[in-house]
C-alpha cells in the first residue's frame, strides 16, 4: 500500500501541483513571495502593540511577544490549511472530471502549500526568538512531532471538509464560524493561566490545537506554559487530544474515500 501511495507518479504530481499553487498564490503582487514573511511580521507588530503594550495580558510570562506569535502562526496554519483544502476538490473540478488521478493528491498538495507557508513563518519566529534572547533547551526536539500532530489533525479535517464541500456548498460558511469560535476557545491571544476555573482549563486543553500550541510553547519558548501533562498530572486524560486527532483523521479519510468515487459526477 505504501508503495502505491508513494509511487513515482504521485510524487511527481504532488510536486507539480504544489509548485503551481505556490506560483499562482502571489501572482500579480508586487512583493511576491516576500508576503509569506511579511504577513506574520505585520501581524506580530499588531499583536505586540495591542496585547503586550496596551492590554498587558501576558504579564509574568517570559518572552510573551514570541509566545503570542507562535500561537498565532500555528493557528493560522490550521486555518489556512483547512480553508484551502476545503475548496481544493471543487476548485480542481476541471482535473477531476477529465483525468484519473488519485483524488487525495489534490488535498495533499493544497495542504503542502500551507505547510510551506508555515515553514516560512517559522523562520520569522526563529528570528524573533534570537532577538528576544530565548534560550533553547533540548525540548526543541519535540517540535517536529508537535507540528506533525497539528498537520495530521488539519489533514483529517481537510479530507472531510473538501469531500463534504462537493455536496454541500455552504460548508465553507459553517466552517468559518467554527474557526471563529475555535480562535477564541484556544489560548492564542491569552495565556491559559488566565482562565481561573480549573475545570474549564482542563476542558480547553483537550482541544488538540490548544494542546499542541501549549506543548510547542513549552518546548521552545518557556517552561512557564501550562501543558496537558501538568494539568492532568500525566493521567490517562492526556491521551484524549491524540485520540481526537486520530479519530478525526480516520473519519475524514474514510468519508473522503467513500465519496471520492462520485466527485466527477457531483462537482
Amino acid at each position: 500500500m505504501f508503495k502505491r501511495i508513494f509511487s513515482k507518479q504521485n510524487i511527481i504530481l504532488v510536486k507539480e501541483l504544489v509548485r503551481t499553487d505556490f506560483k499562482l498564490r502571489y501572482q500579480g503582487s508586487v512583493l511576491g513571495y516576500t508576503w509569506s514573511l511579511l504577513r506574520p511580521l505585520l501581524i506580530f507588530i499588531i499583536l505586540y502593540i495591542v496585547f503586550v503594550k496596551f492590554l498587558k495580558v501576558g504579564a509574568g510570562i517570559p518572552h510573551y511577544p514570541v509566545y503570542l506569535l507562535l500561537g498565532m502562526v500555528m493557528w493560522n496554519f490550521f486555518l489556512e490549511m483547512t480553508m484551502m483544502s476545503l475548496g481544493s476538490i471543487v476548485g480542481r473540478g476541471d482535473l477531476i472530471r477529465k483525468i484519473r488521478i488519485p483524488r487525495w493528491i489534490i488535498v495533499i498538495s493544497s495542504s503542502l502549500s500551507a505547510v510551506i507557508n508555515f515553514l516560512l513563518n517559522l523562520v520569522v519566529i526563529a528570528i524573533f526568538m534570537i532577538a528576544n534572547h530565548v534560550s533553547i533547551s533540548w525540548s526543541v526536539l519535540f517540535l517536529p512531532l508537535i507540528f506533525f500532530e497539528v498537520y495530521v489533525f488539519s489533514l483529517g479535517i481537510s479530507f472531510f471538509l473538501s469531500a463534504a464541500f462537493v455536496k454541500f456548498r455552504d460548508i465553507n460558511y459553517i466552517w468559518e464560524v467554527f474557526l471563529q469560535a475555535g480562535f477564541y476557545i484556544t489560548p492564542i491571544l491569552y495565556p491559559l493561566s488566565r482562565i481561573s476555573n480549573h475545570t474549564y482549563q482542563k476542558l480547553m486543553i483537550l482541544n488538540p490545537m490548544a494542546q499542541t500550541m501549549q506543548d510547542a510553547r513549552y518546548s521552545i519558548i518557556t517552561h512557564q506554559t501550562i501543558t496537558s501533562y501538568a494539568l492532568f498530572n500525566n493521567g490517562y486524560y492526556i491521551y484524549i487530544p491524540f485520540l481526537i486527532v486520530l479519530i478525526t483523521l480516520l473519519i475524514g479519510a474514510t468519508y473522503f474515500k467513500k465519496s471520492s468515487k462520485f466527485f466527477a459526477e457531483e462537482i
Binding site: 511527481i12 504530481l13 507539480e16 501541483l17 509548485r19 501572482q27 488521478i101
Partner: peptide, 24 residues
C-alpha cells in the same frame, strides 16, 4: 487538461506532463 492560464507556456508543459505521469 490542467492548463493554467496564469502560468507560462513552459510551466504548463511541465504541469500537463506531470498529469500524464512524466517527471520534470
Amino acid at each position: 487538461v490542467g492548463f493554467s492560464p496564469e502560468l507560462t507556456g513552459r510551466e504548463n508543459v511541465f504541469l500537463n506532463g506531470a498529469l500524464l505521469g512524466f517527471s520534470r
